[in-house]
């Protein structure tokens, strides 16, 4: 029997106010695949991630994550947001941030259980931030903070990892570090990473989807330079015709 897809997006529409951001989007990510989601700014990439997380609801269409509605699958999904939704001067240490990935796993009251603490340490090792555990987040570089957010997502012990522009605000060295971590993780979980830099992520991901406001096209075959060219070129021309 074919395993249930990790992410299944069927004919999804979404609008902010009156402005349509996503129009009839289809996407199927099978379990174990490593996907890159590319496209221009404002193309709806972050919106699609939020729909997959159940933070937003589609106006039309259907989304299933591991065969479940997004709200119910949430705890199986690790999320690394684009702009961290917190202040950099918030008084908190790295280990406590990573521990937040354990929320929703056990009782909310009382001390962390031993397995929670073990998962936090393992996640920090995996994202290579164990040396930063006792540092306040305000003292981290952009690349270090981004790896801490990856560790927080890993602490959830996810089956699917969603990352929104994980390397937007960091230097090339930091970018490479993050993607080396992701490449290792891809061996045991499904990953969907949003990026604007297709040339860079194509060295790492197996498949690419291109989202541009109103249409999504994606490779059904494994990624090749030709399909890449075709994918990234087509939607740009489509937009040019539209206006």
């Amino acid at each position: 029997m074919e395993a249930v897809p990790a992410i299944e997006v069927r004919g999804v529409w979404f609008a902010y106010g009156g402005v349509t951001v996503l129009e009839d989007v289809h996407l199927t990510v099978r379990q174990g695949e490593f996907w890159g989601l590319v496209g221009p700014n404002g193309g709806g990439k972050s919106t699609l991630l939020k729909l997959i997380l159940g933070l937003l609801r589609p106006a039309r269409g259907r989304i299933r994550v591991l065969g479940m509605p997004p709200e119910r699958a949430r705890l199986q999904v690790g999320y690394v947001p684009q702009f961290a939704g917190f202040r950099r001067d918030f008084p908190i240490l790295v280990r406590a941030v990573v521990a937040m990935g354990r929320l929703g796993r056990g009782p909310l009251i009382g001390p962390w259980r031993g397995r929670d603490r073990a998962a936090v340490e393992a996640a920090m090792r995996e994202a290579e931030v164990e040396g930063l555990a006792e540092r306040p987040i305000g003292s981290l570089s952009g690349g270090q903070l981004q790896r801490v957010l990856v560790a927080r997502a890993l602490a959830t012990e996810p089956r699917i990892l969603l990352l929104d522009e994980p390397t937007a605000n960091i230097d090339q060295r930091g970018e490479r570090d993050i993607f080396d971590v992701l490449r290792r993780l891809a061996e045991r979980m499904t990953i969907l990473v949003v990026s604007h830099d297709i040339a860079f992520i194509s060295q790492y991901v197996q498949r690419v989807a291109c989202l541009n406001r109103t249409l999504l096209c994606h490779a059904t075959d494994a990624l090749t330079p030709e399909s890449l060219e075709r994918l990234y070129g087509a939607p740009v021309r489509a937009i040019a015709h539209r206006h």
Binding site: L53, L55, R74, L75, V77, Y79, P81, A84, G85, F86, F90, I92, V97, M100, G101, L103, G104, L108, R152, T156
Partner: peptide
């Protein structure tokens, strides 16, 4: 968790 990062807390089902 909510004071620190509300969106993430929501994703974790809080």
């Amino acid at each position: 968790a909510v004071a620190f990062d509300e969106e993430f807390a929501r994703v974790r089902g809080l």
